[in-house]
Design a protein around this nucleic acid. Structure first.
Length: 686
RNA sequence: GGCGGGGUAGCUCAGGUGGUUAGAGCGUCGGAUUCAUAACCCGGAGGCCACGGGUUCAACUCCCGUCCCCGCUACCA
């Protein structure tokens, strides 16, 4: 396969991962996906490329129906809420989507149905019956999350059909003891249901050829490596339909109550949104998805690699008439103040709140997120760094250079671009260096190296500052006004180029600067061509491009962050009371004190620790999932509390006799339950 | 445990088909300067390039092993 880097494309289809409409957008999403894609697209537009920049809300799937139930509203109301918040936040932040659509739109249902039907009609999908839980009262099949029951491992009575949140075990609904429907509370029955499967395994060779051979050199190493890992592991057929009433109806006879699986319909949302955009614009959508002369690029986070590099391309291959992505620049994750961003723990900076707290400072966040984007590895965002980047870089380097030039121009020449005398060697050197920068930015952007690109942009301002300082026009104005004219002429050209070059990265600032300079609309090529401002051209009064961010503003954000976390701790970690039990039931449990004699980590596991205990009546082996929280060496001699008459269970080949009682703290760490150190072994707890 | 990505100056990161003194920005220290939002400009200090072996005339770069962080996956109280 050819390396497409060198190929000239006629048009571009650029997509940004569809945000899931059950929560707001945070800085992690922005840094990984939306800021880079927006920079890329703004750059392409400045090069007068034909580009469609596509995004929208991903609105189907079980989590949304659950959130709706919890809040006592309909799924549609849930997605309406977040669609509105996010669409508005993107707009205010300057993410310049050509369209921000949604998967609940009729055109999406139509598109997804058509594509499913096309694959179905070709006989590609495998049909298979399976038994799934059904709620007879509500007359519907139950999603895994809609079934609760007793966990077969830890006896937690509130385990879900997909996972026990008490012990963390992944479950299948049929594993549960005493399953119950969340909808009616009744016992569900197993009922036969039919589903369709996409045979990913049959596309293994095509994927191998396309990715492993064809994109060895132009895809990012993390993306390529992850794909290789998936393909080498062997692909399995994957169900594309499920029993649910929220989603795209399966377009086949007699399939009441079945919808397309959300992972199948979501990426098709890119295509539906493109159609919607083309309709509004009165143009044809097909070339954007079906022409070899179109470059398709998906911007995503690393959690989405498998969907965009394996599954969605297989859907497109199966359908047969679509192009495949030329590149899938997948970024790593952004941390916040050293901790993982977490929606449930409320550890995040939300875009809509940022826009509220820092009005007119979109570019500051855009700059910080781009210059520190998690391109090759996870990165950290801190408010202190945010402040420093603003004060020491944007303001001190970019803003200051522009301001110096403008102030001097007004002071000496009434705000008119002066007429230069002959250029000196220094002038020519500066102009030569200036002319090299746009091409460096270009090369970086074409290769999705956004940090490098934005640094080159800043180098232009650095160049300007150095030139001004070296030439010292304020010192020589009295003796040699002609020379000062040339110096400011050159400085002003640098300002103008800066306005052009910063447009993709800092659109609001670039716009402000262009207005001050009275610069008419411009294209990317103008950053390379000669002078942009003619002698005699008048410029407006200087205006500060950036303002200093003070310590107290930063402290406010830090306080807010920690307060949110505290509030959340209390709200989230106090679990609801379990169902009442009788004293007799309690008495069945033999809980007693014991001492750890020795401990060793169980080989080939991450969490398991094999413990030898002295219970006062015997010495026994217990396997416990504490290896992530305690070192084996630190455990000998530890006083613990043991549930001693739990039925023995073989775990990783070791028979475990009982369970050590642990409490999970709000930080997610496990802590031993203590009966006090003075107690001997074997004392019953009641 | 398997697989993938990463571990380089105080911080955030570049880099390298193996080859003289390992780079940038910010921070820090010193100097210079005053046009400018105490900003800009110059200079210095600061790195066993995670650790241990190996290949080589030469390794931060290649190979093997170990440790740590992140993700996927498995197993799992």
């Amino acid at each position: 396969m050819t390396n497409n880097k060198t190929k000239e494309f006629k048009r571009y289809t650029v997509t940004s991962a569809l945000p899931y409409a059950n929560g707001p957008i945070h800085i992690g999403h922005l840094a990984g996906v939306y800021v880079p894609s927006d920079i890329y697209v703004r750059y392409l537009r400045m090069k007068q490329k034909d580009v469609a920049f596509i995004c929208g809300s991903d609105e189907h799937g079980v989590p949304i129906t659950i959130k709706a139930r919890q809040e006592g509203i309909t799924p549609q109301q849930v997605v309406d809420k977040y669609h509105k918040i996010n669409k508005e936040a993107f707009k205010n932040f300057g993410i310049s989507f050509d369209i921000y659509s949604r998967t609940s739109a009729p055109i999406h249902h139509e598109t997804a149905s058509q594509i499913f039907r096309a694959i179905y009609d070709k006989g590609i999908l495998a049909e298979s019956d399976s038994e799934q839980y059904y709620d007879e009262k509500e007359q519907q099949f139950l999603a895994d999350r809609y079934i609760t029951g007793t966990c077969p491992h830890c006896n937690n009575e509130k385990a879900y059909g997909d996972q026990c949140e008490s012990c963390g075990t992944s479950l299948s609904p049929t594993d549960l003891i005493n399953p119950k429907s969340v909808l009616s509370g009744n016992k569900p029955v197993l009922k036969k249901t039919k589903h369709w499967y996409l045979p990913l395994d049959k596309y293994e060779e095509k994927l191998r050829k396309w990715i492993l051979e064809g994109h060895k050199n132009d895809w990012k190493t993390n993306v390529y490596g992850q794909c290789k890992s998936w393909i080498d592991m062997g692909l399995q057929p994957r169900a594309v339909t499920r029993d649910l009433d929220w989603g795209v109806k399966v377009p086949v006879e007699n399939t009441e109550g079945k919808v397309l699986y959300v992972w199948f319909d979501a990426p098709i949302g890119y295509i539906s949104a493109t159609r919607e955009w083309a309709q509004e614009k009165g143009t044809d959508w097909m070339p954007y998805w079906k022409s070899d002369e179109t470059k398709l690029v998906h911007f995503i986070g690393k959690d989405n690699i498998v969907f965009h590099c394996i599954i969605f391309p297989v859907i497109l291959m199966a359908e047969g008439s679509y192009i495949l992505p030329d590149n899938v620049p997948g970024n790593e994750f952004l941390n916040l103040e050293g901790d993982k961003i977490s929606t449930s723990r409320n550890w995040a900076v939300w875009l809509h709140e940022y826009l509220n707290d820092f009005p007119q400072k979109q570019d500051v966040l855009r700059y910080v997120l781009c210059v520190n984007a998690p391109e090759t590895k996870d990165n950290d965002f801190s408010w202190k760094d945010f402040q420093a980047r603003n004060n020491n870089e944007l303001l001190a380097i970019f803003g200051n250079f522009v301001n110096r030039t403008l102030v001097l121009t007004h002071k000496y020449f009434n705000g008119n671009v002066p007429k230069p005398a002959d250029f000196t060697k220094e002038d020519n050197d500066a102009l030569a260096k200036l002319s090299e920068i746009p091409e460096k930015i270009e090369a970086a952007l074409e290769n999705y190296k956004f940090r490098e690109a934005i640094n080159e942009m800043m180098n232009m301002a650095r160049l300007g500052n150095k030139y001004l300082t070296d030439q010292e026009p304020w010192k020589i104005f009295k003796e040699d006004e002609e020379r000062v004219k040339t110096i400011l002429y050159v400085s002003l050209q640098i300002c103008a180029k800066l306005a052009v070059v910063s447009t993709p990265f800092l659109p609001f600032t670039a716009d402000k600067l262009a207005k001050i300079l009275n610069l008419e609309s411009f294209l990317w090529e103008d950053s390379k061509a000669g002078a942009l401002l003619r002698s005699g051209h008048s410029i407006n009064k200087p205006q500060l491009l950036f303002e200093k961010i003070e310590d107290k503003e930063i402290q406010m954000q830090l306080d807010k962050l920690h307060k949110a976390k505290e509030d959340n701790k209390v709200a989230n970690n106090i679990q609801a009371l379990k169902p009442e039990i009788s004293f007799e039931e309690f008495q069945k449990m033999d809980i007693r004190t014991a001492t750890v004699l020795s401990a060793e980590k169980v080989a080939k596991t991450k969490k398991l620790m094999k413990l030898e205990l002295d219970t006062g009546i015997d010495k026994r082996i217990v396997v416990s999932g504490i290896a992530e929280h305690y070192e084996a060496e630190s455990l000998a001699g530890k006083k613990v509390v043991l549930l001693a008459n739990l039925k023995p269970r073989t775990i990783k080949g070791i028979e475990s006799h009982g369970m050590i009682l642990m409490a999970e703290g709000s930080d997610g760490r496990l802590h031993f339950v203590s009966a006090g150190n003075e107690l001997e072994n074997g004392f019953l707890i009641s």
